[in-house]
Write a protein that binds this DNA or RNA. Structure first.
Lengths: 250, 250
DNA sequence: GCGGCGGGCTGATATGGATCAGCATCCCCC
DNA sequence: GGGGGATGCTGATCCATATCAGCCCGCCGC
């Protein structure tokens, strides 16, 4: 397999693009970031990136591919907490805990850069602006989990799916992997079910319903928005927690 | 109203007690913390501490009383994301966003110390160890939200309630407000319903069920564990995400 | 060329929890 | 001392979603 975006200038990496939505990154920031990108690793499907209960994990920045973080329950079912796309951290939270409290598993083959606790703190010391940006990224991750929690607690299955597809679209657009018309999406209906707290059967029916309503189509690995504004209204989607209009910190 | 724990030495404050579960705090750390505690405010029930959509919010450290953070949905219902008890941050996440993405409302009268973004970054510069501790506290908050998400996604109403009561108990014990036999709890069944994604009616039935099973009793503002180990098993509760055995960082 | 398997799809039936309606108690305020 | 607003509690009914069962299709390995 060829290394995706190997020759990409650092400011065009998904990670830099995402952080740029929050702070304006200087040449120094970019150089330090470039350093973080050094230790590249590849995870094929089936090899966990982070394993629940394991100690002394390090974190990763996802360069290409899709992953998901999840928790396993005693009965054997699982709850997917979130999906990760290029530019996202994998296991940032678990760096601070003695043992990882969740799993991260690749959905497609994954290229990721290893970041140890030491690397991160060193980078922070060098450019505090980057520290702020990373803290922002972590806050954004938490905001997404909160929104996901609202999904599960108070939205119907159909609203939940609509909201989820919109959020994913907005995130992908931020790193240049989709536009207002839709995006490529490697998630199976089983994965959606594990994420949305539904059964796979019901995911199928909900997708059909959204398709028949003329709102979104999810077929053959592509999500196509047929009526974006209608979908936003239906889902009660407010993207303000995902970015700002233009960088905040200069 | 008299100021609760006004004369309390700083190392006995709930905030210090909680952070001590993670790092060993030096005299300097405690002094800087004492400084953060300076600007005290009081919020009676009915006055929001943080208001969704408002800009330039600051955060607070809760000194006494209970609060809850929640999101309002277009239809008028709400989802409570978490309850805050003494020692917890209020709105830490919203300091980094231009506008707050959630509400925080007192459940009982609340005493809290105001912390601005500037205060926080200044304190971090002074004692990096405190920065790590705060980052840990934030990670722990996120871990709790994640566990809450698993509650809503994959646990039955009864397991969910059991898990919730256990988690709350463990948190309260960490700040000295409860023990293995139980704790005082000012939450109404309506609040529980908004948090657990249930109807108030069903909350009532679930509590009855747990009582009749001889696991927990929640009556007259007190939660009493009748069979702690049984409850832990029933809920699949693993408290490892809430603390460590002894401080990690020396 | 065929068997196995993952994934999408669908109908029938079961069920957990919502919703609606109403009563009892306590407490606060007039 | 009486009225009204929270809060707790309970029964009856309804509905969203789970569960079970099975089919079809395309892909991969042998």
């Amino acid at each position: 397999m060829t290394e995706p975006n190997a020759g990409l200038p650092i400011q065009d990496s998904p990670f830099a693009r995402k952080l740029s939505a929050f702070v304006r990154l200087s040449q120094t920031d970019l150089a330090v970031m470039s350093d973080l990108y050094r230790r590249r690793r590849v995870f094929p499907v089936g090899v966990d990136v982070i394993h629940q209960g394991q100690t002394d994990q390090c974190a990763y920045v996802l360069a290409s591919g899709w992953a998901c973080s999840y928790k396993i329950l005693p009965e054997g079912t699982r709850q997917i907490v979130d999906f990760q796309i290029p530019g996202d951290f994998l296991g940032l939270r678990s760096v601070l805990f003695r043992t990882a409290d969740h799993n991260v598993e690749p959905i497609t083959p994954v290229h990721a850069s290893e970041v140890t606790q030491r690397d991160l703190l060193a980078a922070f010391a060098e450019t505090p602006r980057l520290a702020t940006a990373v803290l922002w990224a972590a806050s954004r991750d938490e905001a997404m989990v909160v929104e996901h929690l609202v999904d599960l607690g108070r939205r119907s299955a159909t609203e939940r799916m609509a909201h989820f597809l919109l959020e994913l679209g907005a995130r992908l657009r931020l790193v240049g992997m989709g536009d207002r018309t839709g995006y490529l999406c490697p998630l199976s209906q089983y994965l959606l079910a594990d994420a949305l707290g539904l059964s796979a059967v019901h995911v199928n029916r909900v997708l059909r319903e959204l398709r028949e309503e003329g709102l979104v189509t999810f077929q053959k690995g592509r999500v196509t928005f047929e009526d974006y504004d209608g979908l936003v209204t239906f889902a009660g989607f407010d993207r303000s927690y995902l970015d700002h209009e233009g960088p905040l910190l200069m």
